[in-house]
């Protein structure tokens, strides 16, 4: 079955991202497909490559990146929510004339239409939030 996930909260503050990662691993282990993971609201903060969690803690962004590499996941960060919160990739940095970017490899920035499309294409949409 094809699943799509919507993540509404950033890492660490809430358990939402942890739950979503565990769910994703279990779904993949059972042979399901993850059509897309869409990061919205503060969920866009999952995509920063600049976070430095303590060494004995999990690195949530890296966990997403690892899953992305192993399973070719489509990790989509909402552009409107990301811009509002200072999450930008290199293209956006150049376009907006900013002096830095912070989106990790493995994630891509796109519009809200990607969430609706995920709802249409996937068999189930599961929302993780606060």
């Amino acid at each position: 079955m094809k699943f799509a996930l919507q993540i509404n909260e950033g890492p660490y503050q809430h358990q939402a991202a942890d739950s979503a990662i565990q769910f994703t691993k279990a779904a993949l282990a059972k042979g399901h497909e993850i059509f897309r993971v869409f990061f919205y609201h503060d969920g866009v903060n999952n995509a920063t490559r600049l976070a430095i969690p303590p060494q004995d803690d999990r690195n949530i962004t890296q966990e997403w990146v690892k899953l992305q590499k192993e399973h070719n996941l489509d990790l989509v960060v909402c552009i409107a929510a990301a811009q509002r919160r200072g999450l930008i990739d290199e293209d956006e940095m150049n376009r907006q004339g900013k002096d830095a970017n912070n989106i990790s490899e493995g994630f891509r920035i796109s519009g809200l239409g990607q969430l609706i499309e995920a709802g249409i294409e996937a068999d189930r949409l599961i929302v993780f939030g606060a």
């Binding site: 699943f3 279990a26 282990a29 599961i126």
Partner: peptide
């Protein structure tokens, strides 16, 4: 249920409503 059971529940039902 464990996470795999969570996945099964999602698959067995027609849709999921997350009460956030």
């Amino acid at each position: 249920v464990d996470y795999e059971g969570f996945v099964d529940l999602v698959a067995e039902h027609d849709a999921v409503q997350a009460w956030l």
